Amino acid sequence: MAVGSESLSHAIGLRLTSVALFATMNVVIKLAEAHGAALGEILFWRQFGAALLVGAIVGTGPGFASLKTQRFGAHVLRCVIGLTAMSLTFWTLLLLPLAEATTIGFSMPIFATVLGALVLHEATGWRRWAAVLAGFIGVLIVTQPGDGHIPLLGIATGLGAAFCTACISILLRTIGKTEAGLTTVFWFSTLSLVPLSLVYASSVKAHPPLVWALLLAIGLLGGVAQIAMTRSLQLGAVSLVVPMDYTALLWATLFGWLMFGMLPVPSTWIGAPIIIASGLYIVWREHVRRQKATRGAISQE
């Protein structure tokens, strides 16, 4: 097998692994909350475990000198938006069944397209706008606002998390031009511990050993998943690896059934394919746009 093919296979494997690990982490989050852990505790341990893991990798590998950055302000902004996204994501997981929470999160590429057009002034043709409209229709089918089968608060937190995650994707496009993936993960994990420590101090309480084990598992699972996700983008193009994220719905459905005895409602089975198709088309159109831009740059040389 050619080296390029090996790298692509490795990228896809890492992305699939990260999706499976994040899905497992989501289950552990719901179990920890069910056994008495507060949201503030869950958020703290998610970042504390990730910071320990990334710190160990950096310390035994490239060394902490490799984390030097000239864009500290950008990392602070990424931390603020990232913490907001993570808080809303975890809140959504506690409010909704796994499959519905995961499906609403798939609306992120829709928001990213809108933000790319408004903030980065990216050229967005009618095809992508049609995909955005179709995606929002899929969201409406899944959530059915006013029907009551999904709490309105869960819909709001889920869409808010998707929007904030889209904001991060826009921000990382600029940070990634000068910063290594491991550097970005390290600063996000460590900087977020400052405000989370204050939150944790006000919510910490005694737990049985099982809950402490669940909290630690959340951090380690999230840390490994985040590193695998970041590394996948270094080895493969976005258009190649991002579609793997939609396997999260398979995991959410399986875990929801096995762990909590819940299957997606009929509207989710209808709306989810529409949202996924919208996201896949947006990723594909972005791939086409970048290919055209690359060919144009080469022809001008």
Score class of each variant (00 low, 15 high):
residue 46 R to H: 09
residue 47 Q to L: 14
residue 47 Q to H: 14
residue 49 G to E: 09
residue 50 A to Y: 14
residue 51 A to W: 03
residue 54 V to D: 00
residue 56 A to F: 15
residue 60 T to I: 14
residue 62 P to W: 10
residue 63 G to P: 10
residue 65 A to T: 10
residue 65 A to E: 11
residue 66 S to V: 10
residue 66 S to R: 07
residue 66 S to F: 05
residue 68 K to E: 05
residue 69 T to E: 00
residue 70 Q to P: 06
residue 73 G to V: 08
residue 75 H to F: 15
residue 77 L to E: 00
residue 77 L to S: 06
residue 77 L to M: 15
residue 78 R to M: 04
residue 78 R to K: 15
residue 78 R to W: 04
residue 79 C to F: 09
residue 79 C to P: 06
residue 80 V to G: 07
residue 81 I to A: 05
residue 82 G to D: 08
residue 91 W to M: 06
residue 93 L to P: 00
residue 93 L to D: 00
residue 94 L to V: 05
residue 98 L to C: 02
residue 99 A to E: 01
residue 100 E to L: 15
residue 100 E to G: 15
residue 100 E to A: 14
residue 100 E to H: 13
residue 101 A to R: 03
residue 101 A to W: 07
residue 102 T to S: 13
residue 102 T to L: 04
residue 103 T to H: 03
residue 105 G to F: 01
residue 106 F to L: 11
residue 106 F to H: 05
residue 106 F to S: 07
residue 108 M to F: 09
residue 110 I to N: 03
residue 110 I to P: 03
residue 112 A to F: 04
residue 114 V to E: 00
residue 118 L to T: 12
residue 118 L to Y: 09
residue 118 L to R: 11
residue 118 L to P: 06
residue 121 H to G: 12
residue 123 A to K: 08
residue 123 A to N: 10
residue 124 T to F: 04
residue 125 G to A: 11
residue 125 G to D: 10
residue 126 W to V: 11
residue 128 R to E: 04
